[in-house]
Design a protein around this nucleic acid. Structure first.
Lengths: 353, 353
DNA sequence: TCGCACTGCTAATCCGATTTAGCAAACCTG
DNA sequence: CAGGTTTGCTAAATCGGATTAGCAGTGCGA
């Protein structure tokens, strides 16, 4: 709690030059502005000796850029899922010398407004507005003041903001393909949504709609018709359990595509209740790669939500956005889709086995 | 991306006063400096109309205070555990109008140094250095530059920094008491550490040592001797499984105190393998309240790590620290212990049942 | 009526950088 | 050798507030 920070003036004094010259040298513009080698060396040496570091607050005031970005998430920014997203963003930001402000709105629009203000008051260079599950959101007014990106969310109304979301359609394709590749052609049931395009849970979950599109597409291409589909009002274990039980009372499926891992947990239990083995009797493939997927026995094959990559990508996109508005300012609300990788574990086998 | 921010000068102009006056009024010092009611109202009105908000970067430059604190954690700041800690810190900070910078060192001392620098470059008002599991840490040099608090960590060498840690000793007492209260007196086994004071896993985990102290204290007071103890090299399910299996081959315990929930998970499996029911045959109490504790069947009674409260407390302590060093600067490295509440679920019953 | 205290406000300075405008010396050129 | 260019560097303004010093105007006592 003692020694005053070293300032540019200190460096200049030691080097025997003006602060202007020191600034020029240290910002790398010395060469272009014809500062002599000798002076340049003196300044560099002085800066190194004093361990000079520019005060970013000061730079921020003068230049308006604080090398800082704000990360606001709607709900618990700090669940395991969100954590990985933040981690990705954190690392991508750090690689560019940026720091992250974190904020949580808890779904409260007023809080969201306050956080946006607080961040703008601190002159952030850009803002990432994240949702914990993929969905459409109303873009708050305060967003226009700085470059911004929607993460895991699409704008409800048309907006110039770019979005970064998981590629759920491709995920649907991958899940379906995993079963086809294992040799499944019949008795493929959907748990959580489907079989029709419009059989999705209420609430406008993007995941339901898009996963279904991908699944249907691949099955259709292979000439396979899903044997059935079961919408769950919410993707929780108890609904997965109930839906699968109901199914098992009528027929014996060969494979289940569960719409997320919690539903799959319920399905596992139902299968167990009916004495069916995974994957020998019934293959199961799912989505999300929730931590429980690796805890389940047999371990669940699932198409992962790439939270870490989503976070990284959001920062990447934000930087192009920051770069952009110095030149033209024509954002077009592009949507960036991040691939969802499948985690092959133990829950899929060929139907013959 | 358009309208310039409203500045104090704008407000002053509209109100027809000097920026000085406007500043005085808005910082609440108008009264004491004899600004007339009339002028005060004009300034307030103008500020409200223009929706004026002070630029914190500017204030930071002049006053040195940025209403910002840095939160650095050693490992994955973004695991579920860390998440709650951050959430607690976030909310406590927000309540005072502060924002949080987040940083992750991943155990890398060099990265830690860089993060500290980056935060000091941004003039944070204070720093929270957090560990993901309770342990002693070497306090980095860069800490002296601003008020700081250790969270979930104790300084390895004597240090003036205050610490905030969970009250593991009391947790040990509470766990033991839970069994005593249920009527257990015999066949109480410790899985993970013990029974002797020095039977702890390598690595210097604070939790092992302190939980053991609390457990032994309460049992001793009740005149009860633990029937046995089993050190696990690491508190993972497989070791809990192995230790419990080994135990069951020799004798039949009536109650287990597992040193964390993952160990308990392994113990559950071993008990199941031997056909023993929880809690009818064997009661189990554990520590951490890891998310799996609520997933396990029967649900696990466990003494919770209060991550959220730890985060809040760290911010509280940091603020007294920030307040302190304006006056005297005598920090004394106090240790603040946060209570660990027991989550009573289904895994403890009376031995008679 | 002069001098002093008080009231009510403002000019000027500062924080630590960046950036613009410009100056003195050396160097050409005709 | 006067006049223009180039070289190499610096003074001063700026960002948006907080803070210090101080300045008019009024009231009042002597």
């Amino acid at each position: 709690m003692s020694r005053r920070r070293v300032t540019l003036a200190d460096v200049a004094k030691i080097a025997g030059v003006s602060p202007t010259t020191a600034s020029l040298v240290l910002s790398g513009r010395g060469r272009e502005l014809r500062i002599s080698q000798d002076v340049e060396q003196r300044v560099l040496k002085a800066a190194a000796e004093l361990q000079y570091r520019p005060n970013i607050v000061s730079v921020g005031l003068r230049t308006g850029t604080t090398r800082t970005i704000g990360f606001i998430s709607d709900t618990v920014a700090t669940s395991r899922l969100a954590g990985d997203m933040i981690k990705g963003a954190l690392e991508a930001a750090r690689e560019r010398g940026f720091m992250l402000f974190i904020g949580e709105t808890e779904g409260d629009a007023e809080l969201e407004r306050l956080l946006l203000q607080a961040m703008h008051d601190r002159q952030v260079d850009g803002i990432i507005l994240a949702s914990m599950y993929t969905r459409t959101i109303r873009v708050p007014k305060g967003m226009a003041a700085a470059p911004a990106v929607l993460l895991n969310a699409l704008p409800k109304q048309p907006s110039p903001l770019p979005s970064v979301i998981p590629d759920e359609i491709e995920a649907g394709r991958v899940a379906a393909k995993a079963l086809l590749d294992a040799g499944h052609r019949e008795g493929i049931h959907l748990i959580g949504a489907g079989p029709g395009r419009r059989n999705v849970p209420p609430g406008g979950s993007v995941a339901a709609v898009e996963r279904l599109i991908g699944i249907r597409e691949v099955l259709a291409e292979a000439g396979v018709k899903p044997a059935g589909g079961h919408v769950c009002p919410d993707w929780q274990p108890e609904y997965g359990l109930a839906a699968t039980r109901a199914l098992l009372q009528k027929e014996r499926p060969r494979a289940l595509i569960c719409f997320n891992d919690r539903v799959a947990l319920g399905a596992y239990q139902a299968l167990d209740d009916f004495g069916l083995k995974v994957p020998a009797d019934v293959s199961v493939v799912s989505f999300d790669d929730h931590p429980i997927a690796a805890w389940m026995r047999p371990q669940l094959t699932t198409v992962a939500l790439p939270h870490y990559e989503l976070g990284r990508k959001a920062v990447d996109v934000l930087f192009t956005e920051i770069g952009r508005d110095r030149e033209d300012d024509g954002g077009e609300g592009e949507v960036h889709r991040v691939p969802m990788p499948i985690r092959v574990r133990e829950s899929v086998a060929s139907p013959g086995a």
